[in-house]
Simulated scan of single mutants.
Amino acid sequence: MTSAAPAPLRRRADAAQNRAALLRAAEEVFTELGVQAPLDAVSKRAGLGRATLFRNFPDRQTLVMALLESAIEQITSESQRLLGTPDELIQLLHFILDRMVFRAPLVEYWQTSGRLQPEMQAAIASVMAIFEPVIQRAVAAGRCRADLVSRDVLPLLAMFSGSLCGCPLEQRDALAARTWVFAMDIVKPAPAQPPIKG
């Protein structure tokens, strides 16, 4: 018969579960109602009290930046899952675009927070680090333009978010599909040109 976990371990496990529940609830509430939605709605959606919310996230900015960190972790996990697949670069970009469709209010907030904030600088550096080896493999395999580098991902993501932010949910799928076409025109290698006849 196994003994129960020591009390400190149980408390740490409970704290981790509460934090995860708050992040899930915040993403849902902010996506549905906008980032300025009452924080009470977040704690209520998570089934936790206000004290638990503010113990984990003292203010709205801290909560939204924690969601940004969570989004980066999801991109990291997806890049690891796609490792070795033929079109990992294309699939990873599409993974991000799909999530931007539903997280447009959060993406817009992150953008307006300012790129010079330490959290935003860290997020940008993380994204570039994730894409660096992915792009190198794609270039080596001839699956993208030969001069593509990790920093080029930033204007691509800006194009994704710029087409979606401020748009109602029912319009985002069509806008995302159109934006994807333009993005692929930028990323994929140019078709070989027929020789010029003399």
Rank of each mutant, 00 (worst) to 15 (best):
T2Q: 14
S3R: 08
A7T: 15
R10F: 04
R11M: 09
R12I: 05
R12L: 13
A16W: 09
A16Q: 15
A16I: 12
Q17T: 10
N18F: 05
N18M: 15
R19N: 02
A21G: 03
L23I: 00
E27K: 07
E28Q: 13
V29I: 06
V29C: 02
V29R: 04
V29L: 02
T31P: 03
E32P: 01
L33H: 07
L33P: 00
L39N: 03
D40Q: 11
V42T: 00
K44L: 09
R45W: 04
R50I: 00
N56C: 06
F57L: 03
P58A: 10
D59N: 13
R60Y: 00
R60D: 04
Q61D: 12
T62C: 04
T62P: 04
T62E: 11
V64M: 14
M65E: 15
L68D: 07
A71Q: 14
I72L: 10
E73L: 14
E73K: 14
I75P: 04
E78W: 10
R81V: 03
R81L: 10
L82N: 00
G84F: 00
T85G: 10
D87W: 08
D87K: 11
L93C: 15
L93P: 05
F95R: 06
L97T: 07
L97C: 09
D98C: 13
R99K: 11
V101A: 02
L106K: 01
Y109Q: 13
W110G: 03
Q111S: 12
T112G: 07
T112A: 09
S113N: 09
R115K: 07
L116N: 12
P118I: 01
E119R: 14
E119C: 10
M120L: 10
I124A: 15
A125Y: 09
V127G: 06
I130Q: 08
I135A: 03
V139Y: 01
A141K: 07
A141N: 04
R145Q: 02
R145D: 03
A146P: 01
A146R: 05
D147K: 04
A158L: 15
F160L: 04
S161C: 06
C167D: 06
C167G: 12
P168K: 07
Q171C: 13
Q171I: 05
Q171N: 11
R172A: 10
R172D: 03
D173P: 01
R178E: 14
T179W: 05
T179Q: 11
W180R: 08
M184A: 13
M184H: 08
V187T: 07
V187F: 05
P189Y: 01
P189E: 08
A190K: 05
Q193D: 09
P194T: 05
I196S: 06
